[in-house]
């Protein structure tokens, strides 16, 4: 059994679930900055309050899993993205407690502070995650088994681009979630924001896709596309991935453009389409980078822990992960349906 490959797959799933689930509630957090009233803001947060901390679980499972299964990857990547990880952690802590504290604050200034901490934290966490992704794609300078670059190597035009892309992507997920969970005025607003976010996401994803080809010749080689030539034999079998992404984006735009129209599609479709767009991007990324875990220095097998450690953990993960997954599905189904005014548990 190829244990490193199995673990790479498990961690990829955990990270993907994190992006899809917490990305959605981070997006709602950012959108709450545009709420026109406290009541509207409470409606927005009421759609994510039952699920947000479960969503964050996947970040810890992904991060903890990376340490446990691929210690060398963890050891190289974490020092390389020291400052963005710090910003992400601080932002997530602030945002997490702001969920509760903004309801407990009695005086106007403290209430405004925790509201600000809520959407500011959501924004900072999203941006830093995107920047970390960009730094990951561009790869890390290593010497021996250590990171050998500087404190700000993560900062580049490319990583800023991925930072903004992830931010808009999360806003899109959040807007589509609000379309699913709300009605009336707020839903209309979510459709408008969703449309703008979709346009931004489409531009960003296209730019990132092209820029990724320029990151390293090995990526170009895999897709068979470079600035000067195209190898049909290579791009053809892979082409369904970007084509699916484009088609889903077009479909989502069509759904969004029928603002308020009677013929608008079902409310659940935009969220599903947005997930599809994210998945196509994720799979595209996996195609570009596989099997690198520390691009372009170490692959999955270089960085894996010993087989006896991976095997021991697989037993635990095999029992626990299905339970956690089942519970996640249970919570989501328990809170299925539209949020009504005053549904937020703080009333």
């Amino acid at each position: 059994m190829d244990l490193p490959l199995i673990w790479a797959f498990l961690i990829a799933i955990a990270v993907m679930l994190y992006v899809l689930l917490d990305g959605m509630d981070l997006g709602v957090g950012m959108l709450s900055a545009f709420a026109s009233s406290d009541e509207e803001r409470n409606m927005m947060t009421a759609t994510i309050e039952p699920v947000w901390d479960g969503n964050e679980t996947w970040l810890v499972l992904g991060g903890g899993g990376l340490f446990a299964a691929f210690p060398l990857a963890y050891a190289v990547i974490m020092p390389a993205v020291y400052l963005p990880v710090l910003i992400m952690l601080a932002a997530l802590i602030f945002r997490g407690v702001a969920f509760e504290f903004r309801h407990k604050a009695v005086r106007e200034p403290t209430r405004l502070f925790w509201n600000g901490a809520f959407y500011g934290g959501s924004l900072a966490a999203s941006l830093s995650q995107g920047v970390i992704l960009g730094a990951f794609i561009t790869g890390f300078e290593t010497s021996g088994r250590e990171y050998a670059g500087g404190a700000f190597d993560w900062l580049s035009p490319f990583s800023l681009l991925t930072g903004v892309s992830v931010m808009f992507g999360y806003v899109l997920l959040g807007a589509c979630w609000l379309i699913l969970k709300t009605e009336g005025e707020l839903q209309l607003k979510a459709r408008r924001f969703g449309l703008w976010a979709l346009v931004a996401v489409a531009i960003c994803f296209a730019l990132v896709s092209v820029a990724t080809l320029a990151v390293d010749p090995r990526v170009t080689e895999r897709w068979g596309v470079s600035m000067t030539s195209i190898e049909i034999a290579k791009i053809l079998p892979l082409s369904p991935v970007p084509i699916t992404g484009l088609a889903l984006s077009a479909w989502l735009a069509r759904d969004m453009l029928r603002i308020g129209g009677d013929s608008a599609g079902p409310d659940w479709r935009p969220y599903l389409l947005a997930i599809g767009i994210f998945l196509s991007g994720y799979v595209g990324l996996a195609i570009s980078l596989f099997p690198w875990l520390v691009p372009f220095s170490f692959d999955i097998w270089d960085t894996a822990a010993r087989d006896n450690a991976l095997g021991l953990m697989l037993v635990g993960a095999g029992v626990m992960l299905p339970i956690i997954l089942a519970y996640t599905i249970y919570v989501y189904s328990l809170f299925w349906g539209k949020v009504k005014p005053g549904d937020g548990y703080h009333a």
């Binding site: 340490f67 963890y74 974490m78």
Partner: peptide, 28 residues
């Protein structure tokens, strides 16, 4: 949550050298 990230950000050589022993204990 902050604790677990310290191993990577500040003690990465420790994480690399001991990962195959500490990993399963902390993973569990």
């Amino acid at each position: 949550v902050v604790m677990s990230y310290q191993f990577g950000t500040n003690w990465s050589v420790f994480a690399d050298r001991t990962g195959s022993v500490m990993g399963p204990l902390l993973g569990y």
